[in-house]
Design a protein around this nucleic acid. Structure first.
Length: 855
RNA sequence: GCGAAAGUGGCGGAACUGGUAGACGCGCUGGAUUUAGGAUCCAGUGGGGAACUCCCCAUGGGGGUUCGAAUCCCCCCUUUCGCACCA
């Protein structure tokens, strides 16, 4: 018998798939087109078995769809810009272009070794000028529509690394790399006006039926829509047009407003205190608050503090005079940056009022009547009846809100407003390794967009990487100095580059026509292929990437480039793979492989071992090479898909891998031995004359695997069904005398087994397919069909329960009547004994399931 | 604190619209073969009792609905994830 030599088989079929272009998509338009996409990775160079899950899931699905006759487009590319390559250049002196290219080569090889196939003819890299030319094009289209703009803004600054950090590099207020606290610097920054799309991004979540609910919830929270009203409070001693505007969702509580509070950053603050005794202290306080970390302040980790400004405002409803405070808990970026404070009905206002000794006044009564302010320990934020609210008293507060907003609008001191938590998208980075922002600054013409025909604005290769705080491009005169596209006078290029999320917000469109030089993509082709039929990626992109991609798609729709408004019809987020990791109190994460008896390999301290996401930084990765070398890629694939439902987090198990390997070895032996015995027997005919159980099982496993893959992506139960089927088959062959084998049935079962197994273990199945006498790829052999009528049993086993407890099993013909079933059950020896002469009070017969006797 | 998801053998996990809990795999136990095995094959494996195929208890805990609940309802506990001064 030929041995299962995966080291020979796997490279052979990998070459074969590539040579035969089996995964090159045909032009769309046949009606069975399927765009299947995995989030393109950052080319880090080294992949571990945890990364593999994403791609293995995608590949299994891709092969399944292909076998079912779909014209599948499954491309792969590289999210190749970004900080790690630049940081590597700073540390090691290797140019990002070189390290990125090397890493891409490594990863492409890795995919191949996993047996993962893509339409490589469409490969793209976001750092390639042929790609980022169109990222710049996209920026210019947004700029034309006023959606890309520049303003001063606070950015994260790490003074130890001398660099600006992206939000995602700030972990709990500290620099991700050095741990230094991050502070804020006020710099000119570029933004994309995503807030203009906030309503549509929120509303259209409702159309995404095949997205995980939790992703939609996360996006909805992030967008954070709130309905309220802006109200003008006149300031005592100022003219009417100098009113202070606040935003509130609870105008019904306004009679309980006992003070006002404004953000220390509020532009009016300095003017209000000018020349007053409070001026010095208030301005000092404001300066101090600005130095507090934005993270700590935004997360409410800072103690609430504030100062009275010495000024008062007039409540527009009651005419009452209330003091104006400056307070650190009021955020400058939300609403109007000033609030009316109602301690009795807002927890934050309550806490501040208690600390500052300000009064609490109850104006909403709960079911048990109004609370006593002196006795309250927290704010009452529920709905209720309005009290002590002038003419509005006695109203239900929800009704009061609507009426009071209408009143404010009529009287002209307020306006119903919708506010979002979502902020405009800050896209500029003071870094080198990104797409340059295609803008030229001219002293005469101002901000001038680079004309389309001058794109791409290419990154110069030779720059100084040492971080100074400015973009490295600023120190490169050949790049910076350029004539103004408008007037021709000497001008300066913008030296900031774009956030890599801009690249990934549209790359899925570029795959449709990756080499097109006249446009970012072919509109007609894009409309035929998209929306993406199945998008697969990690949950960590639930908000940013997916929101940005949706925003950009809607924008391109609005300017006539796409017919669809949502890019991804179906989304799947796979769970992380975890593995034990060791942490030493002194040395941090230490390699788990070197830990013996829970002791740190560097010192003698006991380490703490916990399950962690597999990550290089935690030294707990399992290298695919170690698995592929010992067991083969098919084993890794099979185990990865078998260990748990793919959406769930799961621990990698080295023992489990061996189980998968054993299974493949058994399949190999089963097919080799049996096909040798069968000789040239053909299993094409699905004769009903053969072994009924064999036939039924063959159809049943076909249905199970097809449904698990086609509906819920439950690869784990599909694999289990295949194991069960092969166990049955081996058992049948062993227990039935060779002369009595249902030879066509067995031949057919083997072929179907191989076909159904292909998406999971593609190499071994290609090999076995040939050994079963086939000449073409298993991918070309179609996907087996099942016949529902073949699943029916002649005789079924029914459980007989007495008062719900299992007492006996009976075999009855499927077409037996209820009466026959009941009689059979009651006549069963054990049931007779248990009933012991008692009359059953009731007998429930569930056809095909059970009989329950109630006594 | 708010929101969501989830708690099933020693472990990963099965269980269709309520209908024989523990599929499949790992691990473990016994046996066969082997110089040996981290190889292969056979048998067993939720717990407790009884000893042949019988009883009791078991799906985080406690109630409830039902002939029948892992599944539905209520209360509680735990874990994970997300959000968290957004007025």
């Amino acid at each position: 018998m030929k041995s299962y030599d995966f080291k020979k088989i796997e490279p052979h079929w990998q070459e074969f798939w590539q040579r035969e272009h089996l995964f090159t998509a045909k032009p769309a338009g046949g009606g069975r087109d399927f765009y299947m996409l995995m989030m393109f990775p950052y080319p880090s160079g080294t992949l571990h078995v945890g990364h593999g899950r994403n791609y293995i899931i995608g590949d299994a699905l891709c092969r399944f769809m292909k076998m079912r006759g779909y014209n599948v487009l499954s491309p792969m590319g590289w999210d190749a810009f970004g900080l790690p390559a630049e940081n590597f250049a700073i540390r090691q002196g290797v140019h990002p272009a070189d390290s990125t290219r090397d890493n891409i080569d490594k990863m492409r090889r890795q995919f191949k070794e996993w047996g993962i196939v893509y339409d490589w003819e469409r490969e793209l890299a976001s750092c390639h000028p042929g790609f980022y030319r169109w990222t710049q094009w996209l920026f210019l289209r947004m700029h034309e529509k006023g959606l890309a703009y520049r303003r001063r803004a606070d950015v994260n600054w790490c003074d130890s690394c001398k660099t600006v950090l992206a939000n995602e590099q700030v972990v709990e207020g500290a620099c991700e790399r050095c741990g230094n606290p991050v502070d804020q610097r006020d710099l000119e920054q570029w933004f994309l006006r995503i807030t203009r799309y906030a309503d549509r991004l929120l509303d259209d979540l409702g159309t995404l039926e095949e997205w995980p609910e939790r992703v939609k919830v996360m996006q909805a929270n992030w967008i954070g829509r709130s309905e309220g009203v802006e109200l003008d409070f006149k300031v005592e001693g100022e003219s009417d047009d100098q009113s202070l505007r606040v935003y509130t969702t609870r105008p019904d509580t306004i009679y309980g407003a006992t003070f006002m509070a404004m953000a220390p950053e509020h532009p009016r603050l300095a003017g209000l205190v000018a020349g007053r005794p409070e001026e010095k202290a208030v301005l000092a306080f404001a300066a101090e608050v600005r130095r507090e970390s934005a993270f700590a302040r935004g997360a409410g980790l800072v103690e609430k503090r504030g100062l009275f400004t010495g000024r008062h405002a007039i409540n527009p409803y009651s005419g009452e005079k209330v003091p104006i405070w400056a307070a650190n808990f009021v955020l400058p970026g939300y609403g109007t940056g000033a609030i009316m404070a109602v301690p009795a009905h807002d927890q934050r206002d309550f806490e501040f009022a208690r600390a500052a000794g300000l009064p609490v006044r109850v104006v909403i009564a709960g079911p048990e009547g109004p609370l006593d302010p002196a006795a309250m320990t927290e704010a009452f934020t529920a709905d209720g009846v309005m009290v002590d609210s002038g003419p509005w008293s006695g109203r239900n507060n929800r009704q009061g809100i609507a009426e009071m907003i209408a009143h404010a609008e009529k009287e002209g001191f307020g306006q119903g407003t919708v506010n979002f938590r979502l902020r405009d998208w800050l896209i500029s980075r003071q870094r080198y390794w990104g797409a340059p922002i295609p803008i030229v600054h001219c002293d005469a013409c101002g901000e001038v967009p680079v004309p389309d025909d001058q794109l791409p604005v290419e990154l110069p290769r030779d720059v100084e990487f040492r971080p100074t705080g400015d973009s490295p491009l600023a120190a490169c005169p050949e790049f910076v100095n350029t004539p103004c596209p408008a007037c021709g006078a000497p001008a300066r290029r913008e030296t900031d580059t774009m956030d890599t999320f801009v690249d990934s917000s549209w790359y899925f469109l570029r795959f449709i026509s990756p080499r097109l030089t006249s446009a970012p993509f072919d509109r007609e082709e894009v409309n035929r292929w998209l929306p993406v039929g199945q998008y697969i990626g990690g949950i960590e992109h639930a908000i940013l990437h997916l929101l940005y991609a949706r925003f950009v798609t809607k924008f391109l729709h609005d300017i006539g480039w796409t017919e669809f408004e949502e890019p991804f019809a179906r989304l799947f987020t796979q769970g992380m793979i975890t593995y034990p990791a060791a942490r030493c109190a002194r040395h941090g994460w230490v390699p788990i492989a070197q830990v013996k008896e829970q002791t740190c390999p560097q010192c003698e301290e006991t380490v703490e071992i916990s399950l962690q996401k597999m990550a290089k930084s935690k030294y707990n990765v399992v290298a695919p090479a170690s698995i592929i070398d010992r067991f083969g890629a098919d084993t890794e694939r099979l185990f990865t898909l078998f260990m748990a439902p793919p959406e769930r987090e799961c621990e990698w198990s080295d023992e489990g891998v061996r189980g998968a390997s054993r299974f493949l070895n058994r399949i190999w032996k089963l097919v080799q031995e049996t096909s040798a015995e069968l000789g040239s027997e053909q299993g094409a005919a699905d004769a009903t004359s053969g072994d009924a159980e064999l036939r039924r099982r063959t159809h049943a496993v076909t249905r199970k695997v097809t449904e698990d893959l086609g509906q819920d992506l439950h690869f784990n139960t599909a694999v289990a069904a295949l194991m069960e089927f092969s166990n049955f088959l081996a058992d049948y062959l062993q227990k039935t005398a060779r002369g009595k084998w249902d030879r066509p049935g067995v031949a057919r079962a083997l072929k179907i087994l191989v076909q159904l197994l292909h998406p999971f273990a593609p190499h071994i199945t290609e090999e076995l397919w040939r050994d079963l006498g086939e000449r073409d790829s298993v991918l070309a052999g179609g996907w087996p069909e099942w016949d529902e009528s073949a699943l029916a049993l002649d005789v079924v086993e029914l459980a007989v329960t007495v008062n719900g407890k299992l007492r006996a099993n009976i075999s009855v013909p499927v077409d037996a009547t209820r009466e026959q079933v009941q009689d059979l059950a009651l006549a069963h020896e054990r049931i007779v004994k248990i009933l012991d002469g008692r009359e059953p009070r009731k007998v429930i017969v569930v056809p095909g399931r059970l009989v329950n006797v109630v006594v």
